[in-house]
Design a binder for these strands. Structure first.
Length: 302
RNA sequence: GGGGGUGCGCCGGAGUGGGAGAGCCGGGCCAGACUGUAAAUCUGGUGCUUCUAGCUGAAUAGGUUCGAAUCCUAUCACCCCCA
């Protein structure tokens, strides 16, 4: 059987992943899987810088508009979905493209996540409720008692981490750490990483310009339509949260716009931190197509 | 032109008014963590150095004093009032 390759195009927001991915998909006559935790939602378009409709039609594109903001979605579901897509795709082609900025989704697909049982939302909510009433310190002590091993390594100041671990413990009766094997999954394909980056100030200029463009394209109106659902997980998103603050009079329109730009820059920063740690290797300027394609072809073994 | 006030580390604020604090709060920025919320969530740093410590420092230049961000003089900048 011939080797299969997944070209992973990753990088901070606004760096130019999508256009490179489309270009590459045309070149290799293949399709794209989006690794983006917000573009999966049908109802969010402008604020997530989703590929345009015509872009989505030029090449096969998966995991965009896949679910509703009312659906439960997470990295585990993404992993499963993406593996299915690749399995079908590699029946016909040898190369596929993964493109996105959600580092954890990329890692899940390329290296796999340890298997965890599904935790009912009710369990999580109940622990969250305990957090609300008893506070962080209570959860810390609880976890320390139930799973001292994980407690030693977890960021115990982070409520999300504690709530997740305690949910698993309560639902399964086993420690959280007992599920952590930390072994890379073996995949029937090889990943070729194309990490995009460019000087920080250029990237920040692009981010600011793109936010202005989103506003021209009607971000405010899109946010207004989604406002009734502002409590949903999917709507805890840069570009929407700030608009909601504006709608509720907590800031002026101008302040909200500046906050969106700032928070997007910070988001990009966090992405860069993640990629630096989990995806070392060469970095490419998004327009340096020659270097990028020779890197890919070297990876494929041409 | 005359009188008064204010001036500190990237920015804003509070505070102190002879025994320093590279101190406090907020912001910005930088850096980091992160195995099912990941565009989320969380942490740290932010004068310099050889970094468990040391050095420089309170607009600028002088002065008084054992000791000055604090008092005095001059200059500069900004603000207010009167012309």
């Amino acid at each position: 059987m011939k080797s299969k390759f997944l070209i992973v195009i990753a990088g901070p927001t606004a760096v130019g992943k999508t256009s490179l991915a489309i270009l590459s998909a045309k070149k290799y006559e293949t399709g794209i899987i989006s690794a983006d935790s917000r573009q999966v939602y049908r109802e969010m378009t402008i604020g997530t810088a989703k590929p345009t409709k015509s872009e989505q039609e030029t090449v096969p594109m998966h995991c965009v508009n896949l679910v509703s903001i009312h659906d439960e979605y997470n990295v585990g579901l993404f992993e499963k979905e993406a593996l299915d897509i690749l399995k079908a795709a590699f029946e016909k082609v040898d190369i596929y493209i993964l493109c996105g900025g959600t580092g954890m989704y990329i890692k899940a697909l390329c290296e796999g996540l340890d298997l965890f049982p599904d935790i009912p939302e009710k369990v999580r909510q109940s622990i969250h409720q305990t957090y609300e009433t008893e506070g962080l310190e209570y959860l810390r002590q609880w976890l320390q008692k139930e799973d001292p091993g994980y407690y030693a390594s977890v960021d115990s100041m982070n409520p999300h981490r504690l709530i997740r671990a305690l949910s698993v413990i309560r639902h399964t009766g086993q420690t959280f750490s007992s599920f952590l094997k930390g072994k890379k999954a073996s995949r029937p394909f090889k990943c070729i990483y194309v990490m995009l980056d460019q000087p920080r100030d250029t990237l920040y200029d692009k981010i600011n310009a793109r936010v202005d463009l989103m506003l021209e394209n009607g971000l405010e109106n899109e946010a207004r339509n989604l406002y009734p659902h502002k409590h949903l997980k999917a709507l805890q998103t840069v570009g929407y949260s700030e608009m909601f603050d504006y709608f509720e009079g907590r800031m002026s329109f101008e302040e909200a716009v500046n906050e969106i730009k700032k928070n997007t820059r910070r988001y990009a920063k966090r992405q860069l931190t993640w990629f630096r740690k989990y995806m070392p290797g060469p970095r490419f300027h998004p327009e340096d197509h020659d270097s990028i394609h020779s890197h890919i072809e070297k990876g494929i073994g041409l």
